[in-house]
Nucleic acid binder design. Structure first.
Lengths: 123, 123
DNA sequence: CCGTATCCGATCCGATACTG
DNA sequence: CAGTATCGGATCGGATACGG
């Protein structure tokens, strides 16, 4: 899962970095600051611990997120977006979020948006 | 592959719509107007005809692209982004493209960017 | 030129059990 | 609380052949 060097276009590398069912959602959940594993798992509907850790680890290898370990028990680890690559990638995720909101509103899913109180983001 | 109605967040639906290795690249190639299947296949490095048709068909079902058929032989079909959903989704793809360019420039792949003359897009 | 069908390996992802 | 290991079903994606 290391970065290849032979990408033929920028979208290919972005796909490699954020592909999969969970990565965009994880990054979105980190948009307002650092969170622990258990916090993330509570907030992300349906993700298993295994998937969460696996995806976080990949994002870390790509330099999109980083982690703070506090030593001692109980363990406390916090994950956060990196200033450069993380924040950069978040820009794309934010647009995706807004596009998703519009799409849902235009396709009979306004009720879900409304029920959750989801609002479009400032870009 | 029809749209579910039980999405729990906007990013989930966006993932469903543009997931896979090829869809973002296909949409990007359509950004400046309609193109035929064979044009797209020439421009998209490494895609097979099967994958291209399959992905185009999915994008069509989601209302992201549409097609013009000209009757008679030789067949000529053109694919293009829809005004609403297609252009909307393109916004996200454009950001992804720029993020990818930055990422490549910062990670020893400037030569690829330069060799292909790839420029960041106006947002 | 466009589109469909099939076969098959690679990978994704969920469930589950176990460790420090 | 955080992380690892394994196993199997589902899905993805490449090769290839054939049909309108």
């Amino acid at each position: 899962m290391k970065l290849r060097k032979d990408y033929t276009c920028p979208l290919e590398i972005v796909h490699d970095i954020i592909k999969g069912k969970w990565k965009p959602i994880i990054l979105f959940q980190l948009k307002d600051g650092a969170k622990s594993l258990s916090q993330l798992q509570k907030e992300i509907n349906g993700i298993t611990q295994k998937m969460l850790i696996e995806q976080l680890s990949e994002l870390k290898q790509y330099g999109i997120i980083s982690k703070n370990k506090a030593l001692g028990y109980p363990l406390h680890v916090e994950y956060f977006l990196t200033e450069d690559k993380g924040q950069q990638m978040l820009k794309a995720i934010r647009i995706m979020q807004n596009v998703g909101i519009d799409y849902m509103n235009e396709n009979g899913m306004e009720d879900i948006i409304k029920a959750k109180g989801i609002k479009k983001l400032e870009i």
